[in-house]
Design a binder for these strands. Structure first.
Ligand SMILES: [Zn+2]
Ligand SMILES: [Zn+2]
Length: 801
DNA sequence: AGCACGCCGACT
DNA sequence: GTCGGCGTGCTC
């Protein structure tokens, strides 16, 4: 008898459930491990993952149930990916199921050969809460119990779609099917354009529209798999084109188009350093290069070299908006790239996943979750803008894609290439310690030169009495005016969306708060309402103060909307546009704005940090950072690092083309070290200063942090639970020799969020294993606390609001 | 995570 | 004497 260990697919954060089932004959010949199955678990039928095959069962097992149905024709994960899942579960304190769900796409659709199974036993039908339904359709159920399964088609004929859906919803029946597989394209032949002139196309459109269609398609895609083309077009159409010599059928070759760009000496050296280490086992590189130094071209060359050696490449980017730029660049020179990001529909992701699994993609490009792409034979993993916080998932499993990428590279003997203009302290520290090789690009490519950067003391602006308004210094005003006169473009950054900052009563100082969160509400001009930036609750601006009844409420501070309004008043002739999250929610608008910007149809672009990243506007010659202080005053030990990165990134938007750039940083603390180092673009000094502080204050990378957040609608309950957790951890601290530091318990910086109070506890300890075991213990003992009280556990958190 | 079993209070 | 609260233990 054949047996399998099945991991039951239920989201139990406390523990995994693995049980042995028998595989009734006929046992499939191919591998079972990694396939999904349907099993009866307890009273219910559930899906599970086969994680082991065996020919015997442990002696203490009395009953073994059979596998009801094997749901996959081939495995959806291999032993390496299972190992990776186990590592995720252990490292980030989640269950194996939660980790596997990252790796195996949830394909609700795409099941074939669907059948209906009974999900209630005959002898139990009377005790079922919906037994009247069983009685109502008794003949159907009797047949179902007897035959065990009925094809969905037949069942639909008997009862109709609606009734079946009802029965399924009530848990009386189960619709199961085999996950649709993916047909590989055999032979590996493709069609390409041959001797064909574009000008012939219009003539052909009239005479032979189908042929023209094929040609247009080939012009767009470059090449099309033979199977696919032959399936969609008639044989005669294709043959006619072949006979005319317009197209050719060729074996899909691995030849890479030669790169048209000439590398600088620095780039050449960087590429050589990486490429020479391909196939030499795991190794990590940090490509540290200023904005505009041509990192993307190095990624591309390294990727090409890797693919030439027959290995696959993974490229991670921080956000969807940045995928487009790299996709365009890579797709031009590397055939068969796959794209995966969270903006795609589930079906699109699944299709792409199957292509990758099938070995049809030589390069996968995507955001955070693409780190789990089912690539085998990985030779190189590239992480662009490695310092970006979006690589960390802010819900369980709270993994960090850079760490996962490192782990995969180690498992696959591949190279890890991290790129950044402002590396995270952790990453740069690794390079300083010799854990990775530092590759430095210090010059911008082409004729672009580093911008000139000015720090403007806003205290003077305040003292003099602002000529224009509070948030625009004379200096920046004049620079903008000059810039407009010269017909150049300008970008203004303000990292605060909305119109103002807060609504305040001028008589008693009361601030209008969100009724669901402990944060002030922000007025938004477009909707003419106050908005909570944390829970998106909106409310009309109150006409009277809720505390003292005063009519004098004021909108204080300024956001991008107010900045836009004021600039339009100050520079009435200028073409001014704004781009922030609120704008980007409108469908076409962001793209239109970016394109208009590229074409020089916008004079002043106002935006939040989203325009600081990635976009390359060659004719921007002035960048204004309106409020550099706003970024510095966050309650997080990484605030300085974030501010430095953001200022440098923003400054990097200036002077990317031929035009030399200027940057104006407005601040009330012109002597602040972070601002001054950012102004000098002096990463090295910033690093040395910041790492010194981290060492003194005992923060990462010199220690690890376990963060516990307890949340509940009742504050008392929160406090009780967090105190109990603190007591428990205190006991461990006393018992251990190691240096363990406990910060808190204390309310989170945002004390209430979506009607839940939040309290946190930070445990600092160099020994990460100890932190994990503390976290694991808390998970194992969760039932000791009220179940409605949420306990979240994060190892090395990035956000601590 | 579900679900059944089982032991105590309140209510027909 | 019965209905129902949720603590405890089990799921191959
Ligand atoms: Zn008031
Ligand atoms: Zn809110």
């Amino acid at each position: 008898m054949k047996y399998v260990d099945v991991l039951i697919d239920i989201a139990d954060s406390r523990a995994d459930h693995i049980y042995t089932y028998s595989v009734p004959p006929p046992v499939p010949e191919k591998e079972l491990t990694g396939r999904r199955v349907l099993v009866e678990w307890g009273k219910k039928k559930r899906e599970g993952y086969i994680i082991r095959e065996r020919d015997f069962i442990e002696q203490d097992i009395t009953h073994v149930k059979p596998v009801i149905k094997i749901l996959d024709r081939e495995p959806v994960f291999d032993s390496k990916m299972l190992e990776l899942a186990a590592w995720i579960a252990q490292t980030y304190l989640c269950s194996l199921v939660q980790a596997l769900r990252l790796i195996v796409p949830r394909a609700i659709t795409g099941k074939k050969d669907k059948v209906v199974l009974p999900n209630v036993k005959e002898e139990e039908m009377l005790s079922s809460p919906a037994s009247f339904l069983v009685n109502k359709y008794l003949p159907f159920f009797e047949e179902l119990w007897q035959r065990e399964e009925i094809s969905l088609k037949e069942a639909r004929k008997k009862l109709g779609k609606e009734v079946l859906e009802l029965l399924a919803r009530e848990g009386l029946i189960l619709v199961a099917g085999v996950y649709a597989g993916y047909k590989p394209l055999p032979g590996g032949y493709v069609y390409r354009l041959a001797g064909f002139e574009v000008k012939e196309l219009s003539a052909l459109r009239k005479k032979a529209p189908r042929q023209a269609e094929v040609l247009a398609l080939l012009m767009e895609k470059g090449e099309i798999a033979a199977e696919q083309l032959e399936k969609t077009f008639a044989r005669s159409t294709i043959e006619a084109l072949l006979n005319k010599g317009y197209i050719k059928k060729v074996k899909k070759d691995k030849k890479i188009f030669s790169a048209p760009f000439v590398l600088t000496e620095e780039q050449e050296r960087a590429v050589e350093m990486i490429v020479s280490r391909l196939e030499e086992g795991y190794r990590e590189f940090l490509l540290y290069g200023v904005t505009g130094s041509g990192k993307s071209e190095i990624y591309l060359r390294a990727a090409q070299a890797c693919i030439e050696k027959g290995k696959k490449v993974m490229v991670l980017v921080p956000e969807i908006a940045l995928t487009r730029h790299l996709v365009e660049m890579f797709a031009l020179r590397i055939p068969g790239i796959a794209v995966m990001h969270s903006g795609m529909t589930r079906a699109e992701r699944y299709e792409e996943w199957k292509r990758i699994k099938n070995g049809e993609a030589s390069l996968v490009l995507g955001t955070r979750s693409a780190v789990f792409a089912p690539l085998s034979d990985l030779g190189l993993i590239i992480v662009d803008e490695e310092q970006e916080t979006s690589y960390k998932q802010e819900e369980t499993p709270r993994y960090h894609a850079v760490e996962v990428a490192r782990r995969r590279a180690q498992m696959e003997d591949a190279l890890l290439l991290l790129g950044s203009a402002t590396p995270s302290l952790e990453t740069f520290h690794r390079a300083m310690e010799g854990k990775s090789e530092l590759i430095k690009l210090s010059r911008r490519i082409g004729n672009a030169v580093m911008p000139v950067i000015y720090i403007e003391d806003m205290r003077l602006n305040l003292k003099r009495g602002p000529k224009h308004n509070l948030f625009l210094s004379d200096f920046l005003y004049n620079k903008i005016e000059d810039n407009l006169k010269r017909g150049k473009q300008c970008i203004l950054f303000l990292n605060r969306r909305g119109y103002a900052w807060l609504t305040v009563c001028t008589e008693c100082g009361n601030i209008v708060l969100c009724p669901h969160c402990s944060v002030g509400m922000t007025y938004h001009q477009d909707i003419k309402r106050n908005l909570c930036h944390y829970c998106n609750f909106t409310a009309p601006v109150p006409s009277l103060c809720t505390r003292c009844g005063s009519r004098y409420l004021q909108q204080i501070g300024f956001g991008t909307q107010r900045l836009e309004e004021e600039l339009k008043r100050l520079f009435p002739g200028a073409r001014i546009k704004r781009l922030d999250i609120d704008i980007s929610r409108k469908r076409e608008e962001p793209r239109n704005i970016l394109q208009a910007m590229q074409r020089g149809e916008i004079d002043i672009l106002i935006g939040t940090q989203m325009i600081a990243k990635g976009f390359n506007f060659p004719s921007v010659s002035l960048v204004g950072i309106v409020d550099a202080d706003g970024m510095l005053n966050l309650p997080d030990f990484r605030a300085g690092e974030r501010a430095f990165q953001l200022i440098v990134q923003a400054a990097g938007r200036a002077g990317r083309g031929e035009i030399p750039g200027e940057v104006v940083i407005q601040t009330y603390q012109p002597d602040n070290l972070v601002i001054n180092l950012a102004a000098k673009q002096d990463y090295m000094s910033f690093y040395l200063e910041e790492i010194r502080l981290r060492k003194i204050l005992n923060y990462p990378p010199f220690t690890n942090i376990l963060r516990l957040v307890v949340s509940d609608e009742e504050e008392k309950l929160c406090q009780a639970v967090i105190n109990e957790l603190a007591d428990y951890i205190g006991e461990i601290t006393d018992a251990k020799e190691e240096r363990i530091e406990i910060l808190g318990p204390a309310p989170c910086p945002i004390k209430r969020l979506r009607d839940r109070f939040r309290y946190q506890l930070m445990v600092k300890c160099e020994n990460i294993m100890l932190l994990r075991s503390i976290g694991r213990f808390i998970i194992d003992n969760k039932e000791r606390f009220p179940s409605k009280t949420r306990i979240e556990i994060d190892i090395n958190p990035l956000m601590t609001m």
